[in-house]
């Protein structure tokens, strides 16, 4: 039957697509445990490359920089992004549409454009490129992600819950603190984890806004790769993959679980990808 044959062809194609996506990652991870330095054939299992990572001063410094940047920019962008979500969802004010458009510009514009623009601005302000300039840049591109996630959550909120609280005598602040915030909190946490993930992962904007002392892990990986392939890079890559996958997974769980539990807007596949929302 032709439909069955077509189904088989589609299944085979999909399997190949998944293999295409995952085999290189699997091989990268496998070689991080390989005793051979040249990364060519499997010789034996070892954790030496991981041990070497923890003794590498530059890797440790890059890790510290990454964590400092990620923590600071996540905190700031979560505050700014949540404020943005509330302002845009709940209020009408002059310039609202412009602000909305500007907020999402970093998501749609090629990263390099924002990267060189920030670089030029910092330079002309005679700011030294360092952790501060990296943090300011990260906040700029993390904020929209937080805003998108929190907005999706706010949209799905049942307004009758807040009205009920007010009807029962709660003032605005109490309603916000006891009803609105707890309901929106999963969105804020998911947004914060998302911000953390994109901050830890960012290469392009950091590339332009970091100085000699503020190298982050992706920048360090880049300079190592330019130098050549080594199992140590595989080990570092593996750790970074695990961390970002864990964070993204956590963010997704929080969003979908809380959406399922109290009937907020269903968290579809990657709402941050849907630019029209």
């Amino acid at each position: 039957m032709s439909a069955g044959r077509r189904g088989g062809w589609l299944a085979a194609h999909s399997l190949l697509t998944l293999a295409f996506l995952w085999v290189p990652i699997a091989i990268l991870i496998a070689f991080s445990f390989n005793t051979s330095r040249v990364n060519v054939v499997w010789q034996g299992f070892t954790l030496d490359w991981y041990g070497e990572l923890f003794r590498d001063v530059e890797v440790l410094r890059a890790t510290r920089n990454t964590l400092v940047v990620a923590a600071a920019s996540t905190l700031l962008s979560t505050i700014l992004g949540t404020m943005a979500a509330f302002a845009l969802t709940r209020h009408r004010f002059p310039g609202r549409r412009i602000m909305e458009a500007l907020l999402y510009v970093p998501v749609v514009l090629p990263e390099i454009v924002l990267g060189i623009s920030l670089l030029a601005t910092f330079r002309l302000l005679s700011m030294n490129l360092g952790l501060l300039t990296v943090i300011l840049s990260h906040v700029t591109f993390c904020t929209p992600f937080v805003a998108l996630v929190v907005r999706a959550r706010l949209h799905g909120l049942d307004p009758s819950l807040e009205r009920a609280a007010m009807d029962l005598g709660a003032d605005e602040w109490t309603t916000f603190r006891r009803v609105t915030l707890p309901l929106v909190l999963p969105g804020i946490v998911a947004g914060a984890l998302l911000a953390l993930t994109v901050s830890i992962d960012d290469f392009i904007i950091t590339f332009f806004t970091a100085g000699p002392g503020s190298t982050t892990l992706p920048l360090h990986v880049f300079s190592m790769v330019k130098f050549g392939v080594s199992p140590k890079i595989n080990a570092l890559s593996t750790l970074m993959l695990i961390i970002t996958l864990g964070l993204a997974w956590g963010s997704d769980r929080i969003r979908s679980r809380s959406a399922g539990r109290d009937g907020a807007a269903e968290a579809g596949p990657a709402p941050y990808l849907d630019l029209t929302r």
């Binding site: 999909s14 998944l18 996506l21 995952w22 290189p24 990652i25 091989i27 990268l28 070689f31 990364n39 993930t197 992962d201 290469f203 992706p218 990986v221 880049f222 790769v225 392939v229 890079i233 595989n234 890559s237 970074m240 993959l241 970002t244 996958l245 993204a248 997974w249 997704d252 596949p269 990657a270």
Partner: peptide, 22 residues
Amino acid sequence: LLGLVILPFWTNMLIRTYAWIV
């Protein structure tokens, strides 16, 4: 199936590029 496509989307592009260099 969709999860298996989204997961690599969250991993670092630089690292995934490196995987092909290997």
